[in-house]
Design a protein around this nucleic acid. Sequence first.
DNA 1: CGGTATCCTAGCTGATACTG
DNA 2: CAGTATCAGCTAGGATACCG
Lengths: 134, 134
Amino acid sequence: MRLGLKEDEAGKKTSMQSTTCEVLTIWEVLGKRWALLILKNLSTKEAIRFNELKKVLSGISSTVLSERLFELEGEGLVSKKIYTQIPPKVEYSLTTRAKELEVILKDLGKWASRWKYLEGTKTMAAATAGKKNI
Amino acid sequence: MRLGLKEDEAGKKTSMQSTTCEVLTIWEVLGKRWALLILKNLSTKEAIRFNELKKVLSGISSTVLSERLFELEGEGLVSKKIYTQIPPKVEYSLTTRAKELEVILKDLGKWASRWKYLEGTKTMAAATAGKKNI
DNA sequence: CGGTATCCTAGCTGATACTG
DNA sequence: CAGTATCAGCTAGGATACCG
């Protein structure tokens, strides 16, 4: 199973980092592509279904979405409600834990936008150099 | 140049996401491996030299360290002080912006550890399933 | 509908070797 | 010392096809 393997890696990577900072463990999950978007979209709707989510996150594949959702659930950020029926129906929603995270993320967002327009300084040199491949 | 290409990607990736959330742009940089560690180590020392940093982050290669440092500089999180001399000497340090980020990161860390030991609930099922490959 | 299994590619990463 | 160029391995991510 693919997920199993991933966790193993994560374990390997964090093994030498987790001692340094708790944040890194979370980062292993949140830092991954789509993770944040998923959380964000989940926060707008109360509950959302798989394909609905997939539609919103245009570009993501079922594989990855499923994977991220699984990881997020493992971290206790997302809860899954399964309706055993045909056709299947599964609803995802944020947990209390994730709600708390939202606040922090919002702070991060504020921080990000606060500095976004102040790049006219010396740091701009590097930024520009990077954007337009020298 | 390798760095140039990376920025292009970042631009491409965020193009459809940045409108959704400012955080994502930062995440493109912070989410990358080593980025957080670098920031963390920079915060302990006032200023640090390239190889010194490389030594602390045992496992990282010059290539990646240089790359990350460049990206972080582009985001205005790290400042570089070059001493034109032989042998070369370059010191890296955190910018004011990064100092602010630290606070947020610390909150994130608190959040992370606060929940770390409460995984004995239903969320544990998924967590366990993930950790030990079913 | 909601996933999982499989294959395949792109890009991140790290080791090595080489400049200023 | 502080990188950069180059090469090679590995893995995440996407597309497809197929079950419950």
